[in-house]
């Protein structure tokens, strides 16, 4: 290794200037480039990113997309304009839009969305070719049977065509003789027509009240209702409290318990039923729930 001896400090500095580490022009440009590039990217991506204000529905967040799809389904149900619905769905830029709608239908079903919402979404799903139980229940294929239902004086003209697959095992007030009809798919016999909170000052204690009606809105006695909760289950029949109606039955609720209710003959399960405080104008009482189930098996009930 070279060893240099300097007689003066000046000599040493001179030597260092001429032999010290030197950066070439290319190295200097490269260092500048890296520094400038990093700073510019920080600015462009984090400090001052491009803000798109002319976005398409494809940019919407998942919950907003769900709302968008729901709006499409409701619009399609209202105006029947399939071309328009397709155009709107295409704006989502989703190659598996049928799967997306099917998943949304299931999600809505689990979160207890209203029957009308489910119907709209199921109608859209069916049009997209989705084949599932939820679609079969909420948007059944129109058939001769359902046409007969539509002509019947029901509250909702879109009563689904659903056949009975199971007969009641125990009927305390046997007024009907159900005739089982073979069916290729197991679909619920009852559908939830209405779900409402009960807030009555003079009510004994919060209850789950179930009203069973037939396709013509007549009360149905002797219908078995199953109630489940974590770690237990029970059942009761309609028609035991004649003063409240032939189709009426109830079940006393306990505080802090989440109940699930379904009809023994087959229905979707209504979940998340718990004692809920009523609003203040009825005194903030603990309230129960009233569920109205409609038997949709028109074959059984037709005269």
């Amino acid at each position: 290794m070279d060893e240099h001896r300097f007689e003066t400090q000046h000599q040493r500095e001179q030597w260092l200037r001429s032999h010290g580490p030197r950066l070439s022009a290319a190295s200097l440009i490269m260092i500048g480039l890296i520094l400038g590039f990093a700073a510019a990217l920080y600015y462009a991506w984090l400090a001052e990113p491009v803000v798109f204000t002319e976005a398409s529905p494809a940019r919407l967040s998942e919950p907003q997309k769900a709302q968008y799809i729901l709006l499409i389904s409701q619009s399609y149900e209202a105006d029947g304009n399939w071309e328009k619905a397709q155009e709107r769905l295409a704006a989502l830029n989703d190659p598996d839009v049928d799967r997306t709608v099917a998943a949304l239908l299931e999600e809505f079903l689990r979160s207890g969305e209203s029957a009308s919402t489910m119907k709209s979404l199921a109608t859209l799903a069916r049009r997209l070719g989705v084949d599932s139980v939820a679609v079969a229940v909420f948007a059944p294929q129109p058939t001769a049977t359902s046409a007969a239902v539509q002509s019947a004086p029901t509250a909702d003209s879109s009563t689904p065509e659903i056949r009975q697959t199971q007969t009641p095992t125990s009927t305390p007030l046997p007024t009907l003789t159900p005739t089982p009809v073979p069916s290729p798919t197991a679909v619920p016999v009852y559908r939830l027509l209405r779900q409402e909170q009960i807030c009555q000052r003079d009510a004994p204690s919060p209850r789950i009240e179930v009203v069973a009606i037939d396709p013509f809105l007549e009360p149905l006695p002797g219908v078995e209702v199953i109630v489940q909760w974590e770690g237990g289950n029970d059942h009761f029949f309609t028609g035991y409290q004649l003063e409240k109606g032939l189709g009426y039955g109830d079940f006393e609720m306990a505080p802090g318990v989440d109940y699930r209710v379904m009809m023994a003959d087959g229905s979707l399960m209504v979940t998340g039923l718990r004692i809920t405080e009523c609003n203040e104008n009825v005194g903030g009482l603990p309230g129960g729930w009233r569920l109205t189930f409609q038997n949709t098996d028109v074959v059984q009930e037709s005269p």
């Binding site: 260092i31 500048g32 520094l35 400038g36 510019a40 600015y43």
Partner: peptide, 14 residues
Amino acid sequence: WLSLGVILGIASGL
């Protein structure tokens, strides 16, 4: 040279 690099870097980064 350094400034030239920084300018080029900023331009390409943006």
